[in-house]
């Protein structure tokens, strides 16, 4: 699914920057991020809280204003949509939709399920009869009972609310859906239902996903390609199997090894924890942002910032070690190193 469509990506983000605060001392929430998403492709965007992954997603749908770089959707510049006419804005809005993390705050408590789906269709000028048909179709696809259409958000369970959120995102027939931690707040049994639903809908409607998550196991399950973010930058990007079987950046390795695996047989193997915490974007470290926590830090890392380079046809890494030698044999961090 990934390789064939690389020539004509649906979404192309290049050198995206979102800086907050004073121009003299900006907080660089997103600092030069580039990636593309093909038609029908899922890009997993992973990282710890505060790494800028959600801000990146919000910038793509223009909920956060980007301060630099460009976002192309089907070859069209959408970095800022203020200059577009209302009709053009509406057309664009219908193409890219979001599914949010919190199934409770993402639905308007004063609107019934029917209104939640009907209003956007109405805004986009659909006739009442067509709207009703479309709503029935949507409810059927996401597995909700049409008889419940008059119910309000609080009458649904968390999983059902997330289905409503997905139906709302699907309502305008988008090409790209940004899933911002869309399954993170759900119980395990419900999470499986929603993940399966997302996969089914992708196949049926040919959707592309930007799947933003901190849960690497879920991302591995869903994504075709994975980009790892750290402090506003992408530090590694590759096909999912590359990232999970041969991670090249020390941070990706650390991230993978700190996940507790639900199998007690693996307990003998030492879990590798990295020391410290992600630094504040208010005061990013010099050189490579990861160097204070890096187990294989070199003198060069403290002064010179590595750039994201291809080490392989489809594998990009931002690390002095990887770019110097294609094949790296990185040391392993010691267990139990603390801040």
């Amino acid at each position: 699914m990934s390789a064939e469509n690389r020539e004509a990506p649906l979404l192309e983000v290049s050198d995206l920057k979102v800086h907050f605060g004073e121009a003299s001392a900006p907080v660089k929430a997103v600092d030069g991020v580039s990636f593309s998403i093909g038609r029908g492709e899922t890009l997993g965007l992973v990282g710890e809280s505060g790494c800028g992954k959600t801000t990146t997603g919000m910038a793509i749908v223009n909920l956060v204003k980007s301060t630099g770089g460009s976002i192309l959707f089907e070859g069209r510049e959408i970095t800022s949509i203020d200059h577009l006419s209302r009709a053009e804005q509406l057309q664009l809005r219908s193409q890219i939709q979001i599914v949010f993390q919190d199934p409770f705050s993402s639905l308007n408590p004063r609107m019934s399920l029917f209104q939640t789906l009907d209003q956007p269709l109405k805004i986009h000028g659909m006739a009442p009869q067509d709207r009703r048909e479309r709503i029935d179709m949507l409810l059927d696809r996401v597995g909700l009972n049409p008889a419940h259409a008059s119910r309000y958000a609080h009458e649904f369970s968390g999983g059902q609310r997330q289905r409503i959120g997905i139906a709302r995102a699907l309502a305008l027939n988008p090409k790209l859906i940004i899933c911002d931690e869309a399954v993170s707040a759900l119980d395990v049994s419900i999470q499986a239902q929603i993940i399966n639903l997302l996969i089914d809908l992708q196949e049926e409607f040919g959707l592309s996903y930007l799947f933003i998550s901190h849960d690497l196991a879920v991302v591995e399950h869903l994504a075709d390609r994975v980009a790892v973010m750290y402090l506003g930058k992408i530090i590694e990007a590759a096909r999912y199997d590359e990232v999970f079987s041969a991670p090249k950046h020390p941070y990706t390795r650390a991230l993978l090894s700190s996940i507790p695996v639900p199998d007690p047989k693996g307990r003998g193997e030492e879990r590798q924890t990295i020391k410290g915490e992600m630094p504040s974007p208010f005061a990013p470290p010099s050189g490579c942002h990861f160097h204070p926590r890096c187990p294989v830090v070199m003198a060069k890392c403290k002064v010179e910032r590595p750039s994201l380079e291809f080490v392989d046809e489809e594998h990009q890494v931002s690390c002095h070690l990887s770019t110097k030698q294609a094949d790296t044999s990185l040391g392993t961090p010691k267990k139990g190193e603390l801040a």
């Binding site: 909920l63 509406l90 809005r93 939709q97 919190d102 308007n108 609107m111 959120g165 309502a171 305008l172």
Partner: peptide, 26 residues
């Protein structure tokens, strides 16, 4: 700041309709 307002924006609701149809009832 709630997600339902962000959702409304991304669905193309105008400013006035977000204020009066989305937030006001709450």
């Amino acid at each position: 700041k709630k997600d339902y307002v962000k959702a409304a924006k991304s669905l193309g609701y105008s400013r006035a309709s977000i204020m009066f149809t989305q937030i006001m009832p709450n």
